[in-house]
Structure formats: C-alpha cells, structure tokens
Amino acid sequence: MSYAYLFKYIIIGDTGVGKSCLLLQFTDKRFQPVHDLTIGVEFGARMITIDNKPIKLQIWDTAGQESFRSITRSYYRGAAGALLVYDITRRETFNHLASWLEDARQHANANMTIMLIGNKCDLAHRRAVSTEEGEQFAKEHGLIFMEASAKTAQNVEEAFIKTAATIYKKIQDGVFDVSNESYGIKVGYGGIPGPSGGRDGVASQSGGCCG
C-alpha cells in the first residue's frame, strides 16, 4: 500500500502497563487481555490519513522489564514518535516515567515526538495516579498527554493519530530533513516534494507523480 510518509513509533513503559494491548487495539481494533508477553520487540503497522495524506505507522512494541532495557535502547534509533505508557492503577509505573524519558532522550533523536499515555482509564475505581498528575508531568517535560484505555478503545485512535499529526506538523514546519531516515520518517509515493523518494518499493509503483 502506498503512503506519503512512514513514521516509526516506539511504545515504551514498564511491563504490564498495556503496551501490547494498545498496539493491538490500534492495529486490530480488539482487546486481548491474554497474550504472550513481549520478548524483545513486536511490530505492528497501520495506515492513517493526515491532511488527506496516507501515512503508514510502523509501531515497535517493546518488552518492558528492566532487564531488557539495554536491548530496548537500541530500538529508539530512528523513531519519529514514542508512546510512553504508564498504568493509572499502578503508581510505580508512573514513578518510573522519568527513567524512561531519560532513556528516550538519550537514545532517540532530539526531535522525537513523545506522547504520554495513562492507560487503563477504564479502571478509574482503582486509580492510583490522578489525571492532573499525568498532565503535570507531561507539561514539565514537554510531552503530549492523554489517558486512554486499550480495553474500551477510548482515546487509543486519538493517541496514535495525534502523535502522527504532531510529527506531520514538524515536517511541514521544516523541523526534519525527511531525506534523513534517522528521524524515523520515510517518504513514500505521494509524499510532498522532497529531495528523495521512498524506497519501500512504493516509489516504483505506477500511478502518477507526487501529489
């Protein structure tokens, strides 16, 4: 399928906060509470449309356990967006955000867009982190923030798309050199005029020139 851009996302956060569930809800529109825990990294992808342009999100879902951090760090490279997830019912997952953020700042490119997600907001009765705290943390660190529920799908679509819109705006504003793939963006067929075409096979497809 052709796209104007491909954005690489990475989902990070403590184990059990619902990273894989968010991905599955976004890509397959379903909730699967029981799934094999993630070893290393898993991948998902979906097309979205922003500003009438088809954009492919390639999403990296990482293992959350502390032991795997040294491996996870290698996945930040070339990510355009990150979803930093905590579980609103488990305080410690919120407490660990600073350490995740430090990893991201250190190993990702400086212009990576980070979306903070307080997951499991359907479990409000067991809430251990208030919405305000989440907002405050996001504000302090310059992140976009949303509470979401992978189970009910609340805000899941929005979180992924809002992140993409922010990245897209950065492209429009010239923050990125899109020909440099270290920013986690690939230009595909139909991309805005740029110095290079995509190379995922899309550029070679027939169907006219860039729009």
Binding site: T15, G16, G18, C21, P33, V34, L37, Q65, T89, K120, D122, L123, H125, R126, A128, K151
Partner: peptide
C-alpha cells in the same frame, strides 16, 4: 506481582471496586 502478571492475568479488572481498592 511480576510473575502473577506474566503468568496470570494482566489486570484483575472484574472485582468489585471495594475489594479491589482495598487490595490495591
């Protein structure tokens, strides 16, 4: 908690809120 979570359900979402809140 980690073992329970990995081997066992991710969340214990279907409890009565009182019991769950107490446990948490």
């Amino acid at each position: 908690g980690l073992i329970d979570k990995d081997v066992v359900s991710e969340v214990w979402r279907d409890f009565s809120s009182i019991v769950a809140a107490l446990l948490v």
